[in-house]
Amino acid sequence: NCLEGLIFVITGVLESIERDEAKSLIERYGGKVTGNVSKKTNYLVMGRDSGQSKSDKAAALGTKIIDEDGLLNLI
């Protein structure tokens, strides 16, 4: 459970895995996936064609922004 207690938001199109697979992977390792960035969000996983508003909010809140490889490296 290397992601225990961590909260993730996924945005954009992921290249190597589907969004549902990424969500399942995060949950399997103890993390939680939500739909919107908040002060409780630990990581924003940004894929291709992701919206600017979520990354702006993450930056404003100090949320770590990672890509798909960054997510896989956490596991």
Rank of each mutant, 00 (worst) to 15 (best):
N1C: 04
L3D: 04
L3G: 00
E4R: 09
E4M: 01
G5W: 02
G5R: 01
L6C: 06
I7T: 14
I7C: 10
I7W: 10
F8C: 00
F8W: 01
T11N: 10
T11F: 05
T11E: 14
T11S: 14
G12T: 00
G12V: 03
L14I: 04
L14F: 12
E15I: 07
E18K: 14
D20F: 06
E21R: 11
E21L: 06
E21G: 06
A22T: 06
A22Q: 04
K23N: 05
E27T: 06
E27N: 06
R28E: 08
Y29C: 13
Y29Q: 07
G31V: 00
G31I: 01
G31R: 02
V33F: 05
V33A: 13
T34L: 12
G35L: 13
G35E: 15
G35Y: 10
N36G: 07
N36K: 15
N36M: 11
V37Y: 04
S38K: 01
S38R: 02
K39F: 06
K39L: 09
K40G: 09
K40M: 08
T41I: 04
L44I: 14
V45Y: 14
V45M: 01
V45W: 02
M46R: 12
M46C: 13
D49A: 10
S50T: 10
G51Y: 14
G51C: 15
Q52Y: 13
Q52N: 13
Q52M: 12
Q52A: 09
S53L: 14
D56F: 08
D56Y: 10
K57D: 11
A59D: 11
A60Y: 08
A60L: 11
A60S: 11
A60F: 09
L61H: 08
L61R: 07
L61M: 12
G62L: 01
G62A: 05
K64V: 06
I66N: 01
D67E: 05
D67W: 01
E68N: 04
D69V: 13
D69C: 09
G70V: 04
G70K: 07
L71E: 01
L72M: 12
L72C: 06
N73S: 11
L74M: 13
L74G: 03
I75Q: 05
